[in-house]
Design a protein around this nucleic acid. Structure first.
Lengths: 205, 205
DNA sequence: GCCCCCATCCACCGATCGGTGGATCCCGGA
DNA sequence: TCCGGGATCCACCGATCGGTGGATGGGGGC
């Protein structure tokens, strides 16, 4: 019998999952949590085989909750059950050590199969998530801007001129321009406007 | 007995809703749809009292499905059951004529109460949605950019200079600058970079 | 100890930008 | 019919920007 703890802030989703799991003979729902904090507390208390966890929850997010659970009980497996495939926090949850990533849109059998895989010690990844992971690994690394460069670029994004930024940061205009030139180089652009849109695309701003 | 059709692309959410409604004595689930297209077909076929519909669905979106259903059977009431409160398509669904907007995160009783309200001919709005509506009505209208102005601004966002844009659009540089000045005025900014970030905030780009 | 990176500063150049004050054309609504 | 707005064009100005080629000092890693 696979003992499962379900954590999701939506009552509807929670009862949907529970209904699905109840139909499976080899799975038992031993608890439900509606927040990340509650999930951590219950996981430590009940020590389930698997925690089925939503990523977005009020208070403590799914990835943070995952990290906290695994820090104290590495034996517990966490499966993230997420809505959207294009979510940055998926990656932080992976880093937090979750064993599975399934999509709520997946057919019931796929979710059940994922739970059984993880219970056997395997990793269960939804195809879309796997693709995202591959893309992340393949993608060229995002250039790292220094704190100062980021600061200057943020002010540029607000429409401030170089002299205005210089005044704001108590430095010379030449300094501001130097920082900006470095930013241009790192981002592979040649003007402030494109630098801002580029940085936004890359999530740097 | 209130006859309800449930439309959601997530099997889990769907069974959660069905489980919830089954517990209510005065509600009957007469059908389930997993796409917008299917929802329209079933609604026309079964003529339910209420359609409980997700906003985001593959193929036909919730707001479009709502419009199609109401165009042919205005008697059918549509309730949108959405995940996030900050969603622009909420407003288009309202324009499409939905009678209710509830959040999946809401407690079960609230959702049931909403269904009963709409069945009585009332409108059911989640507090967060109502607040969004008020904000939209109160908020100053987004300035409308002319097609040409939008075109120019999009090229600015790509980092093109005025001369470069002029060449690209087969017009003089002075013309490009005039368009940009109009854009600045409409957006209440005074430089190209801020104009781009502003336009992005307003969803114009 | 040395070297690299970050942050800071400076001067100079030509190109570009923002802003002003015009002008013409065309189309659709009053 | 007239009017207004969108799109187009022009010239001119001063401010700003991008780019070059430097310099200094401090902190972390080899």
């Amino acid at each position: 019998m696979i003992r499962v703890l379900v954590a999701d802030d939506h009552p509807i989703v929670r009862s949907g999952i529970v209904a699905l799991l109840r139909a499976a003979a080899d799975v038992e729902v031993i608890g439900e949590a509606s927040t990340g904090t509650e999930a951590v507390a219950l996981a430590l208390d009940l020590q389930p085989d698997i925690v089925l966890m939503d990523l977005r929850m009020p208070g403590l997010d799914g990835d943070q909750a995952t990290a906290q659970i695994l820090a104290r009980h590495p034996r517990v497996k966490v499966i993230i059950l997420t809505t959207y495939e294009s979510d940055d926090s998926i990656l932080s949850a992976i880093e937090a050590g979750a064993s599975g990533y399934l999509l709520k849109a997946a057919p019931e059998e796929e979710i059940l199969a994922g739970i059984r895989s993880v219970a056997r010690g395997e990793v269960a990844l939804a195809p879309a998530i796997a693709a995202l992971l591959v893309k992340r690994v393949t993608a060229p690394p995002t250039p790292a801007l220094s704190p100062r460069e980021t600061e200057v670029l943020a002010l540029v994004a607000q429409g401030l001129s170089n002299p205005a930024i210089a005044t704001r940061l108590f430095v010379g205009e030449a300094t501001v321009k130097t920082h900006l030139l470095h930013v241009f180089e790192k981002l592979g652009v040649s003007d402030r406007t494109r630098a801002v849109t580029r940085a936004m695309e890359l999530g740097l701003l």
